[in-house]
Computed example of a mutant assay.
Amino acid sequence: MRALMDGLGRASHVDRQGLLMRGARAAQLGLLGTLLLIGGATAQGQTQTLAALPDASAAIERGGSAKPVSAWTDFCNRYPAECAVNTSEPTTLTMTPALWRTLTAVNRRVNGRIRPMIDQDHWGVVDRWDFPDDGQGDCEDYQLLKRRMLVERGLARRALRMTVVIDEIGEGHAVLMVRTDRGDYILDNKTNAILPWQRTGYTYVKREGQDGLAWVSLNGVASPITTANR
């Protein structure tokens, strides 16, 4: 009988050890599953974040100083704060999903809100840069309003540069260049799509500088006299 009881005791001890080992194993598997689940969620979140951002591209190369179009000089005389450069601001913005949504929303809103009208019909002059506060304007007026709205939303004006290009029909045209850590992107009244500068099909001439009132040359192309198109 004692031998039987000793045997049962040893068997119970073995069973307890087995239960403890199985419990520990289950806990390890549970922890591993939790870690895998968290890791999967993190990876999915990173993928969604990257998917919400535009493709990265190279920044445009700048050349020497350039003379702005005369209509810009006149604009600066009327709105000096719009042309001042605050060198304490960053020269580029950090691209995030929130920034991309803001750029897209402002670009679409202004493009849909302003009625295109050339300066000759609007102001009675060939080229005038101004805010389209009456709901009408041409290319540069769209971009000036977009920049004002973006600055009101907390973006650094120094990273938002008015830019002169030659468009697809060979005419002078103004766009807004947004300089970011993922490259330079273009806000344009001709499209709601915000594109890397290389994909617009435009020839880039010059843009506002980021260190003072002087403009900078882009690609060494001859400048148009005006940007007076829609």
Rank of each mutant, 00 (worst) to 15 (best):
V125E: 15
M149W: 12
Q198C: 00
G172N: 02
L155H: 09
C76K: 09
M95E: 15
A41T: 08
I166N: 01
A105H: 03
L155I: 10
E171P: 00
A27L: 13
E171W: 03
G220A: 11
R25Y: 00
G170T: 11
I186E: 09
E140A: 12
E208P: 01
G40N: 08
R147G: 01
P97E: 13
V69L: 12
E61K: 06
R182D: 08
S88V: 05
G64K: 14
R199G: 00
A11N: 01
G18E: 08
V178I: 13
Q143Y: 04
L37C: 13
V85E: 15
A27W: 10
A193W: 00
G183C: 05
V175H: 06
R62D: 05
A228Q: 13
G154P: 05
D130F: 07
N107K: 01
H173R: 05
R25S: 00
P116R: 04
L144V: 04
R179H: 14
R78A: 03
A84I: 11
N189A: 10
C139W: 06
I194Q: 05
E82M: 03
G45F: 04
V110L: 03
L160W: 07
L195N: 06
V69G: 02
L187I: 06
T227Q: 07
V125W: 07
L144H: 08
G7Y: 10
D141K: 13
L218C: 05
G39R: 10
V178T: 11
A41R: 09
N77C: 07
G33I: 11
R128G: 04
Y142P: 00
P80A: 13
S57K: 00
L36W: 14
G209N: 05
L160S: 09
F131P: 00
V205Q: 06
R101V: 15
E152M: 15
P97N: 15
Y79K: 04
A84E: 15
G212F: 12
P116W: 04
R157D: 06
N86K: 11
D181Q: 06
L93A: 04
A159Q: 04
D138F: 12
